[in-house]
């Protein structure tokens, strides 16, 4: 990183991080799937993690929670270790609201149990906090609804209840793994709005794993773009979407129908991401990159500071504007 860039609050690594991930590596059977990832989560921010399937974004989110699947080995540091206080300082909003709730216990009991799992409070107090959390997410007649079972909730109410569960203990960070992938636009925006309100109310940051660029645009402060287990680009969401500095980010954006040129064919990233364990030499994106040059085939680029972002690309200064045109046929 160039030393002449001052560490401003806008800099990629400001001093006031809530959580710092450094050189995170996650491997299965010796094959690295996340390969040396560093980023910070700032207080109260919404940080989106995007990338294609297999980029390592869900694994990264799970590492923050200390919920890596069996057989995974983790190296690198995540400080402070919020995962040791999962449920209190860091919590999860899962993709599937129905499976996140037990069908055999009333919703209020489940929230009260979540409260008592981290705080020494009376049953009555836990109960009161549970009802207050349900009320906060907009569940009408929360005291009565707390006694109802998940199947007695509508789909939208269940999603709200899951958000109440994730925020009831006022965590520092809420991790949401594709929370809206299965939802239509209206429900998606509603869920994300409730989540934003609750984060605001309890002062939590959000780490949001998604492949929906509309969600990034509307709901994230910063975006981390991952490719083949590495950082490709990290910066303010609005600026990254408006002017990507890495060809891979541009390719992701180019494939969105809202950015497509008239005509029926969408610009598509050619090929598919490499399988972990059979990465090409140099930059893993080289085989799909329209800007690839000699250096890209031999040296894997490290993230470097470009304006207010981190960009891992040898060729970023050569990127045209708009960069999405690189991918037009």
């Amino acid at each position: 990183m160039p030393s002449d860039v001052p560490l401003s609050p806008d800099a990629p690594f400001p001093p006031d991080a809530l959580l710092s991930v450094r050189d995170l590596r996650i491997a299965f059977d010796g094959v690295e799937v996340v390969r040396g990832l560093s980023f910070d989560v700032r207080p109260r921010e919404a940080l989106a993690i995007v990338g294609e399937s297999g980029a390592g974004k869900s694994l990264t989110a799970r590492a923050l929670l200390g919920m890596l699947p069996r057989g995974a080995t983790r190296n690198g540091t995540i400080e402070p270790d919020l995962a040791a206080h999962r449920g209190r300082r860091i919590s999860l909003v899962p993709q599937d609201a129905l499976s996140a709730l037990s069908p055999v216990h009333p919703v209020g009991d489940q929230l009260a149990a979540a409260v008592r799992s981290v705080a020494r409070v009376s049953r009555k107090e836990a109960r009161a906090r549970a009802v207050a959390a349900l009320d906060r997410v907009g569940i009408p007649d929360a005291a009565r609804k707390a006694r109802a079972y998940p199947h007695e909730y509508s789909g939208g109410m269940r999603q709200r209840a899951v958000i109440a569960m994730a925020t009831v203990n006022e965590p520092d960070i809420v991790v949401a793994d594709e929370p809206t992938t299965a939802l239509d636009e209206e429900r998606r925006d509603q869920v994300l709005r409730v989540l934003a309100e609750q984060r605001e109310a309890v002062g939590a940051a959000l780490v949001l794993v998604t492949h929906d660029m509309d969600v990034v645009r509307d709901h994230a402060d910063r975006v981390l773009v991952m490719y083949a287990g590495r950082l490709t680009e990290l910066g303010p969401a609005e600026e990254v979407l408006a002017r990507p500095r890495a060809p891979y980010t541009a390719g992701l954006l180019a494939s969105l129908p809202q950015h497509a040129p008239p005509g029926r064919r969408l610009p598509a990233l050619r090929g598919t991401p490499p399988a972990p364990g059979s990465l090409p030499p140099g930059c893993a994106f080289t085989p799909r990159c329209p800007l690839a040059a000699d250096a890209c085939h031999t040296v894997e680029p490290e993230p470097q500071e470009v304006e207010k972002r981190l960009v891992a690309c040898h060729r970023w200064p050569e990127l045209p504007h708009p960069a999405t045109e690189l991918f037009h046929e």
């Binding site: 399937s53 636009e185 494939s255 969105l256 969408l266 610009p267």
Partner: peptide, 30 residues
């Protein structure tokens, strides 16, 4: 999105080649 673009392009090509009618159910307005 990147995979989606490839599948949509395939569907467009098939329609051009084969003259298929598509009843396309989708909640994504874009």
């Amino acid at each position: 999105p990147s995979v989606r673009a490839g599948v949509l392009n395939l569907l467009a090509d098939l329609q051009d080649d084969l003259g298929l009618g598509y009843l396309f159910i989708c909640h994504d307005r874009a």
